[in-house]
Simulated assay, not measured.
Amino acid sequence: MARDGARPAYDPAGHDGELRAALQEVRTGRWLSMRTLLERTTHWWQWTQRTQVLAAGAAGTDVIRAWLAEEPDSVPATVMRARVAVERALRAHRERHRRTHELWIEAWDMSQGAARAAPRDPVPWVCLLALAQLDREQSWEEHRAPPPDPTLPPGPWGLLEEAVKRDPHNREAHHRMLQFLYARSASGRPAEAAAFAYLAAEDAPPGSALHVLPLYVRVERYRRDGGREAALDLHWVAEDATREALHAHTAWFQHSAAAERSPLDLNHLAHALWGAHRFADAARVFDAIGPYRTPLPWAYRTAVPGDHAQAAQVFLQARARSRSAAPPTDG
């Protein structure tokens, strides 16, 4: 990829041009492009990623309802209905909306229905995992299953098992488990999440996005410690931080296909390598990112974490610093 100085923009579709086109249609209330795209999606990693992005775009519309009105027996539409219901429940939870519990139960029912309609699909189980974080007290029995390792707490491990049974090393399923563990440790350091991330990375094959999980935990630790007010750059040049960054670069980036890389994973890896002063490696990841920056983790390196303009500036500074220390490559 050419090394240009263009200012990158956030696009949830990233390098997936077909997804971008379908998402634009969804936002205007049209569903035919979404149906066609999902019919052509044959890999579980891509199906999981595309349904997640499309659901975020559809959550503020009635597009899935319109699709089901025309095709009530459509399995993809049934899965998308669950996806959208989960997205709405999670948004309500973040906003502390009074209908959160109602939307949660509705999303759980729809996810169960999607699991019955699509028994080989990991996404309904990913949906159920996503909802587990709302049960912070672990009142539901399925959220108190015994852990697979003594370093981990009871949790929705059965839901994770169902997802990975259908798609081993499913990226989103593991991130949803991380979110559940973060919710458990909302007032403290995410030690349980770190243990889970390391175990998942150890078991992952070369090229798996699970090798990037420890970088997310490190960012979360930094955020909870107060962001740029706590230890500043020393957090990122520590020996274990550098080791995590290099492992993700070697085990994931160097073995993964460009089309399969999540923009969020790429941005976390570039951020970690830049923070560890591994500028030549970071430059190659910045080249892979191209024009599709994500707000996180860059926003956590700003004075105001919610300021996307500042986050973009941090990204540009990190990219420029990394490229200035790396040899040029042909575009």
Score class of each variant (00 low, 15 high):
W47N: 07
A85Q: 02
P150R: 07
P328K: 14
R221V: 14
L213D: 05
G227Q: 07
G331M: 07
G155S: 07
P205F: 10
A209H: 09
E239V: 00
Q310L: 12
A58L: 08
A69N: 15
Q46G: 05
S33Q: 12
R81C: 00
A259W: 10
R88Q: 11
A115Q: 02
A59D: 02
R40T: 05
R171K: 12
R99T: 11
G57F: 03
A173R: 07
E71F: 13
R284H: 02
A55W: 01
E106I: 02
E220R: 05
R243S: 14
D307P: 10
H255Q: 14
Q49H: 15
W108F: 01
R116M: 04
A145R: 08
T41V: 06
Q133V: 01
D135C: 09
W104L: 02
T329F: 10
V63R: 01
L181W: 01
A6M: 10
D4A: 13
G5S: 06
P190C: 11
E229I: 12
A114P: 05
A288P: 02
A257T: 04
A22F: 10
V53C: 12
A230Q: 14
A201T: 09
S111E: 00
R184E: 08
R319L: 08
Q133A: 04
H247F: 10
G306Y: 13
H97I: 07
G60P: 10
A245L: 01
L54M: 12
V237M: 11
V84N: 00
V217E: 15
Q52P: 02
H255E: 11
P150S: 13
P297Y: 07
M80F: 01
P297F: 06
R7F: 03
Q313D: 15
H247C: 10
H101M: 12
W140P: 03
H15L: 03
R284Y: 02
A163M: 08
A56N: 07
M110Y: 05
S187L: 07
E18Y: 09
A204L: 06
A130T: 03
R223Q: 15
